[in-house]
Design a binder for these strands. Sequence first.
RNA 1: GGACCCGUAGCAUAACUGGAUAAUGCACUUGACUACGAAUCAAGCGAUUACAGGUUCGAAUCCUGUCGGGUUCACCA
Length: 599
Amino acid sequence: MQRINKILTEQVQNIIKELYGADVPENQVQVNKTRKEFNGDFTIVVFPFLRFSKKSPEITAQEIGDALVKNMQDVEAYNVIKGFLNISLSDDYWKNFFNGIIGNDNYGFKEITENSNKIVIEYSSPNTNKPLHLGHIRNNLLGWSEAKIMEANGNKVIKVNLVNDRGIHICKSMLAWKELAGGKTPDDVKMKGDHFVGDYYVAFDKEYKKQIAELVANGMDEKEAKNEALWMKNARKMLQEWESGKPEVRNLWETMNNWVYAGFDETYKKLGVSFDKVYHESQTYLLGKDVILKALEDGKLQKREDGSIIIDLTKDGLDEKVLLRADGTALYMTQDIGTAILRYEDFNFNESAYVVGNEQDYHFKVLKIVLEKLGYVWAKNISHISYGMVELPDGKMKSREGTVVDADDLVDEMIKTAKQKSDELGKLESFSKEEKNEIFRKIALGALKYFILKVDAKKNMTFNPEESIDFNGNTGPFVQYTYVRIQSMLAKAKELGIKNIHKYNNSEKLEQTELSLLNLIYDFEDVIVEAGKRRNPSVIANYVFDLAKEFNRFYHEIPPILKEENKDLMKFRLSLSEKTAIIIKNALDLMGIEVPERM
RNA sequence: GGACCCGUAGCAUAACUGGAUAAUGCACUUGACUACGAAUCAAGCGAUUACAGGUUCGAAUCCUGUCGGGUUCACCA
């Protein structure tokens, strides 16, 4: 079925042609949803047409309105306020629309076919030297949700993770563990592997600072001390040994990384995210090196006197960028070049998206230009889904200053709060402990995910650990509650022996709140498209909140549905409720949020 | 210093990307559970959209400048 806003746009174009003899391009016809405080379903802004009509806004709007009513059966009435033409569609239009989608549980979703666009999306990208924190949570949730939204728009999506598993930072944890752990493993001390390793990373930093202080106290200047501190020298040596493949170092590296992966897996599972493929930088940096050396031979890059290889981007408004160190070892950029190429070889994608924080805007700008200059035509299809930092009320999170919000702690805390809240309300007494825990988990994660995803991805957001995340108002649990409530009503309807709720013949005039609900349901298709275009799950969050709110209003304003004597009307309202629930569930799923059946 | 991003009620966020009287939640004040679940609903309070100019029929949104905050400009990742 063709969308009514599309039809309206075409009609307006035709009418203007007829009335004023002018061709108006499609993008000049603004068909918006009518704002709540005015009467109507869609609003057409007539200001852009005045130069064709050469008449006042009011008269122009009237002329167009008259023509619309005449030409379109679905247009029942219109009103004009200033230059705004508000169109009201007939009840029949809305009823027909609803009947058309009543059996379609995937309303709004596009199908994925053989010919679908193939998009690789990278997100998460952790370091293996410390556990995940709140910033990673935002990344993971965004990545997952973006992937879901891309799929809903009919794209074939491949989710990949790139683990940064090599470099000096890893050697720091390894060294500290060797020196301090006495051979203990995470199992021995009953810790999650990522936290275990992270602690040794912190321990390294502590000891390192101590060593610097000692050297400075003995008269060395600080810069030199930083280089000369024993542990730092040892860490650098370890990195060289790693690069040259010394078995002892490689074994330890593998062991400790595996501890970390086990910890990450647990956190990913808790968050409900997963990947189709995991890349490791230790496997891609050599490719990057080869590509750069080859490009140097081809004269695409320059070599400095000290032996480092650079690309000059000053003509592109950027800087000179080093691609390979003087000693020939790889850099972040080197690896990313290798990974990007490998990824193209693996998937032959139409598009490759990176979910990475906005502090790396510059890096990705450079990466794209460098790849283009190296002659990779597909590089133009690389995009950076840039998102803002998560800040604490007193500023940024800093791992070294201990002001991080740990991912595992936060989720556990949320689950505790959900349990407490639920116990106060006492609605789950009849459930087993396992069932209850499952419900608490869904609610807690619903609250957390919604809290993070409702904010425009590109904006920085503040998180106050002192105030726990809300469960009332514009929150995940509010939306979940609406869903649960509908399920409860539908179950009761079944108990009462009401069957075939999709079969009715409702001849009643639609109530205002029913019209609003139908309007919102109609919007879902456009919302998915917009969320995809804007690369922004917050569009979905805002929508599903409005939908839930409107349903709750409907629920309160309309007399009890299950007591309705007009069976046709009752079934229509049950169907409307059911459809609302399905869309809530689908919309939340796009954000990675599950719905409980009871709460 | 150069480049990029941001500044909206006490707080947290919206505003269909240039459209109507700037919306919602939290907090605060009221009212509604012997009618389908009150994690709900209804009502109230609260904004010179950082500031000053400009463009436009129309500006939170675009342009210029000022002030404030952030990120980046590493042979760190």
